[in-house]
Amino acid sequence: MATYILEQSFNPWESISEHQKSTTLHNQFGATATFIGTMRDFNDNETVSAMMLEHYPAMTQHYLEKLINEAKKKWDLLDILIIHRVGNIEPGDPIMLIACWSSHRRASLEACSWLIEELKHRAPFWKKETRINGEYWVEKNTDGL
């Protein structure tokens, strides 16, 4: 189980691969569910040229670990990896990676979906977008539909 808050861009596919290699999961997992959130270049029908992600470091770390522990209690998971960007982000950059490993698909799929929603509603991150007319704080998350 691991969580990382990164100020630099990352390659989520390499992160998944490296994490798998670094663990003792070999030949144990039958399912890997992943979610990668990526920065779009638009929001509310406006062009977004850049974004800054602020966070509350101590509480963020606390909540990511808390979510992992809650997910482990809810589902039979072999491993979880969460990576979240902070700082200055450009369109196309990955913002968040959640990967769950389990013996069978249902646990990893359900846990991954649950972790996305819980993180978005509980972990203290805030987005500030740069649009044509200036910088704007994002006031609430989309409903995901």
Binding site: A123, W126, K140
Partner: peptide, 10 residues
């Protein structure tokens, strides 16, 4: 104690 607006990560 921390005060902040609704969170918007992910």
């Amino acid at each position: 104690i921390a005060f902040f607006p609704p969170v918007t990560g992910g």
